[in-house]
Design a protein around this nucleic acid. Structure first.
Lengths: 117, 117
DNA sequence: GAGACAGGTTACAACCTTGTTACAAAAGAA
DNA sequence: TTCTTTTGTAACAAGGTTGTAACCTGTCTC
């Protein structure tokens, strides 16, 4: 392999690493796993207030998490011109692909929480 | 159900919730998922410096994460009286049970990182 | 006009977390 | 004697994150 190719390869790997890190940082944010989990539990679109209630956090944090998920293409935000306002969030196909991992992870968490009681 | 029973039930549920939250907070700490992942990749005990290198973080952070994992019974720390010192970390059975979830989660992350290149 | 509702945003103080630097211990090598 | 190694720990400044409180929109109701 030429030095040029090797450099291109390395920069590609580093780019991939950056994307992986980016996703891990995203998933590691507070309430992020919970948010994805509660949205996974119900296949229907979910409203802001419902997510906030289930995740049990402040508006600010829930809004931030949902914004980040939307920015990463993991949720879709749909606003309806009702009064008072209605906004629905849906997981994208990409996020749904993560469902099985999250589910078995939460099963593990629940088992572990059970046995430590 | 008596009110007393209901109260006991509720406090049990809240205790479970606290444990779940505790685990989610643990898993959400920076480099935690990476740490578990790199340790999962290799079934052999792993030394501190090797984990640090693979996780790519400061000694302080790696030591903190490993300490937290040990405190939660997810890794075992074994020190050998060599010079210079040798310390090996191993995932516990509990942590190994989490392996499949983590693996498919990382697969998802890698796929996603790939397609965003 | 005032209040209520959903779904936020903004500002900010308080708190949490991180990496850096310095240090330690123990024993063999130079 | 001083250097080297591994595996950390302590202290601290810099930066990041959180919740709270205040505010906003737009319309229907009282």
């Amino acid at each position: 392999m030429s030095q040029e190719q090797s450099q291109r390869m390395q920069s590609m790997c580093e780019s991939a690493k950056a994307h992986v890190d980016d996703l891990l940082v995203l998933l590691s944010k507070s309430k992020m796993l919970s948010t994805l989990y509660v949205m996974n539990c119900d296949p229907d679109p979910m409203r802001f207030s419902e997510i906030k209630k289930r995740v049990d956090s402040s508006s600010t944090t829930v809004a931030r998490r949902l914004g980040e998920l939307e920015a990463h293409g993991l949720v879709t935000r749909t606003a309806y011109a009702t009064v008072p306002s209605t906004v629905e969030y849906t997981l994208t196909r990409d996020a749904i692909a993560l469902q099985p991992s999250l589910e078995s992870m939460f099963e593990w968490v629940l088992n572990r929480a059970d046995s430590s009681l």
